[in-house]
Amino acid sequence: MRLIPRALNSALVCGVIGVVVFLCLAEAAGRLGIIPTAAFPLTSTVLVTAVKLTADPDFLPDVADTFIGWALGLVATVVVAVPLGLLLGSVPPIERALRPVTEFLRPIPSVALIPLAAFVFADRLEMKVAMIVYASTWPILINTIYGLRDVDPVAKETLRSFGFGPLAVLLRVSLPSAAPFIATGIRVAASVALILAVSTELLGGGSDGIGSFIAVAESSPEGLTLIVAATVWAGLLGLLTNGAFVWAERRIFRWHTTKTGAAQ
């Protein structure tokens, strides 16, 4: 292990190297014709366009709109999905009864529902939030259920034998033990939510957000480059928010990481 230079202990250095190598590979794929440049812009072209977008007075407010919709949607999802997951995970009969409904709803593509949602919601922000809740509930719900299943039965028994009620057991043992699972679920949900925010803006109409920027870009022959560049921004938004989540998880679950000796 001592062979590895110290610089590689830094996540930032490694990450930058990784990204640069990846971008070079993508550029090479375009230049060598693996990705025909006629049909898809070169990586360098996309990056230049993405940087230029910051000068577009319409674009940055669009990014902000997408971010606000995403944040509201994710908060709403957590508020809905975590308690639901705790309920379904700790009362198996309810979970079994509702399973046909949840398993039926889960794979239904939001792109099929957006035209219908457009009819139900009079406000576009509400519609965006609702579509996000619909699609991002599942990762949190399922991870919560799986997390509760993985709780150490001995710990639960112990608490029960001390006379604690079911709610106390849930809050003192099950929830803390399932929390890392739930956190992973929220992290997955965060990226699903971002995808939904952009798709709803794109397919549901409206004048705010990266999605509607993409819709407008479709008017131009240069549209594809603009669309891909705008998508890069969506990806960056995902990268940043994920970084924030990881940072928060590390602080909150320090005990968990030490307990299981995180991948040393």
Binding site: F40, L194, I195, V198, S199, L224, I227, V228, G235
Partner: peptide
């Protein structure tokens, strides 16, 4: 550490937006 940023970036990309690339 090397691939994390790429993964986080990749999974935030809406797949419909990448369809033109796959089609190409």
């Amino acid at each position: 550490r090397f691939v994390d940023p790429i993964i986080q970036f990749g999974r935030a990309l809406p797949p419909p937006a990448l369809l033109p690339m796959f089609l190409a």
